[in-house]
């Protein structure tokens, strides 16, 4: 078996494991940690339905960020918006048409050109964020090496991806055969050249960066993606007078008669 193929296949398994276990662990940890007091930033919704709407406005439209700073908002929207489109486009490499029900595959095909050019928007957003970090004094002060490196890592992913799409070209059919074999644990396929990992340098760089991103995800500020859903300031219903809210540890400590 070809050694690049082995290396990338193994790395994919390791990275996937770290990403899912790591993020899963964090989600369980957040969910299990009690919020002992009602602390929504008010005015806050009075019903759960209202909280869902508030959360959607935050997660999809970055509402608070919009109120705060139009420049960060613009770059953040361009980057994240394009990121989702690009990610959806990538589904093409991870699913076979016969796996999914109508019209999923058709939608994935429909989105291809948007994803292809969306990558430029994503890069533009990332460069905007990097420029702010480099040139605004306050941003420089709060940034550590990891904050720059995260942007650089995403830029590497984006630039190598764009180069593959528009300049160097890679054997997508062969890559997809490799990927599906990895996903279906069909390791015997790797004996055949048509199922091995293509070895052009852009693809190697692109995937190495993606694997690195998956590995650092649960240990880095990328935890903002699951974290935002657990922010008590945003996800609590404003009803402390109507409904008594007490954490289990507070009941145990203060409201259980001591023997």
């Amino acid at each position: 078996m070809e050694s690049w193929t082995t290396f990338y296949a193994v790395s994919f398994y390791v990275a996937t494991l770290i990403l899912t276990m790591g993020v899963g662990y964090k989600i369980v940890q957040y969910a299990k940690t009690p919020a002992p007091l009602k602390i929504p930033t008010t005015p806050a919704p009075l019903t759960t339905g209202g909280v869902v709407i508030r959360m959607l406005l935050e997660v999809i439209l970055f509402k608070s960020l919009f109120r705060s700073n139009k420049w960060i908002w613009l770059f953040a929207m361009l980057f994240h918006g394009a990121l989702w489109v690009v990610l959806l486009r990538h589904l093409r490499y991870f699913i076979a048409p016969e796996w999914v029900i109508f019209p999923i595959w058709e939608l994935v095909e429909l989105i291809q050109p948007f994803g292809k050019y969306g990558s430029f928007i994503m890069l533009f957003g990332l460069l905007g964020l990097l420029a702010r970090r480099l040139f605004v004094e306050r941003m420089r002060y709060i940034s550590s090496a990891s904050d720059y490196l995260m942007l650089i890592l995403l830029l590497v992913i984006g630039v190598s991806g764009v180069l593959m799409s528009f300049v160097t070209r890679t054997d997508i059919v062969q890559f997809k055969a490799f990927m599906l074999s990895v996903m279906c644990f069909q390791w015997q396929n790797f004996e055949l050249p048509a199922y091995q990992m293509p070895t052009d340098s852009m693809l190697l760089v692109h995937l190495a960066a993606v694997i690195l991103l998956m590995i650092v995800f649960p240990f880095s500020k990328l935890l903002h993606a699951p974290g935002v859903f657990f922010s008590p300031g945003r996800n609590q219903v404003d009803n402390p007078r109507e409904k008594r809210h007490v954490a289990p540890w507070a009941i145990k400590q203060f409201e259980t008669p001591q023997a």
């Binding site: 964090k26 705060s68 960060i72 941003m139 940034s143 550590s144 935890l223």
Partner: peptide, 9 residues
Amino acid sequence: DTCVKCGSC
């Protein structure tokens, strides 16, 4: 955990 150092605040 979640602060991304976006600078908004």
